[in-house]
Design a protein around this nucleic acid. Structure first.
Lengths: 215, 215
DNA sequence: CGGGCTTTGTGAACATGTGCACGTGTTCGG
DNA sequence: CCGAACACGTGCACATGTTCACAAAGCCCG
């Protein structure tokens, strides 16, 4: 099981970055080993889940001791593909696109913003936070030249599907969609979405039901 | 089942806003009725799921015909608690907080930014996109005066837990956390998170495995 | 007014995810 | 060298979520 045959469940993959962040904190504190219980507390889950999740990566723990923080962090980084940077392109140089380009957290975590792209030629040539704006048509060229594998859609909803098509066409296989629209991508392309209003609407549901049905 | 006893599953709740957005599009097109199949296509899910999800709201469809767009949209808005606005407070007037305050999508969808709050007194009194910055200590007052039920955490990770505590303390029962940190909230408080770097790391995992294991 | 067509609503099978409980390997004190 | 405490790894039962497949219900047309 812990050998080559592993296929890591989606739910586990989604938690790995949380564990990794906790491990990074422990590294800063010079903590050498950590138990599943401690890690669970830091990651906000329960200990059994931590152990099961980590077991998909291999048997990296030691019974009676715990996990070696540095070694586990390394293995996890390797599994997540974070041993090297992933340059990203942001499509859409409007409010949202510029805000994202200005956000330092990306580069810091290994996702430097290599390029900005927009369909509006008036914006081409501008510099946003030191990153030049190119035209959408240049995607394939930029992808090859800068080794871009991840595209971020920061356009209005109506343009999102076209942009997704352009990204896929250019061979960019991972897409993070900020536009409030459902988009479809070809088989083999990864798609994740971040929808702020949607999150608020979900909160609204629970708030409303608490108010209404509460004692 | 379709009576009063329904308790809507989490997974369904998370999809309702997507359906609602699709219904809004249909309304603009003056479409009177819609089938589960069409709605499924628009929402990017399968038709059986749409029918099951909608059945939790009640039996609002007509066999052989479909769903009345306007009526369904109304019922769904009611269920989601979107028949009135939900003023929100953004905590943290830094880069992210300001960008969020500037983002028009919130107000448009019924979540006006009623106040900005920061722990740094130097920022208090500033205007961001027409919204004044208050001090963190004023949360309880602002909550009462403006009827705020939702708080958005847009601070650095280290401050996130303290802010969450302050929000809960002030009686704000719904929290959307943008800080890259795991935070815990008291029983009865809703918490959702948006973590950009985490999303990219998940994409990185799949990208890496596609590259490595692909034929 | 009856038969055929459409589309919902839902029971049941299946898939995925979670959490307990415990066997097993490791450490350490005496 | 032994026993007790510790903590991982995992089998198993349970909970949640997804999909299929079909009966029931409504519409339309001749």
């Amino acid at each position: 099981m812990s050998d080559r045959s592993r296929r890591i469940p989606e739910a586990t993959v989604a938690r790995l970055p949380v564990y990794l962040r906790s491990l990074a904190e422990l590294l800063e504190d010079k903590t050498a080993t950590v138990s599943s219980e401690r890690l669970a507390e830091m990651a906000g889950v329960n200990a059994a889940k931590v152990r099961k999740d980590l077991s998909y990566l291999g048997s990296y723990g030691t019974r009676g001791v715990g996990y070696d923080v540095e070694y586990l962090a390394f293995q996890m980084s390797r599994e997540l593909g974070l041993t090297h940077d992933w340059p990203v392109v942001i499509v859409g140089a409007g409010n949202l696109g510029q805000a994202l380009a200005n956000y330092g957290g990306f580069k810091e975590r290994g996702f430097p913003v290599a390029a900005l792209v927009d369909a509006d030629r008036a914006k081409v040539g501008q510099l946003v936070h030191g990153v030049p704006v190119h035209h959408l048509d240049e995607l394939p060229v930029l992808k090859e030249r800068l080794g871009i594998a991840i595209g971020i859609i920061a356009t209005p909803a109506v343009a999102a599907q076209d942009v997704a098509d352009a990204l896929a066409e250019a061979g960019i296989g991972s897409i993070l969609n900020f536009a409030p629209a459902v988009i479809s991508v070809p088989e083999g392309t990864s798609l994740r979405k971040v929808d702020l209003a949607l999150e608020l609407q979900i909160l609204s549901f629970y708030q409303e039901h608490r108010d209404t049905e509460g004692v």
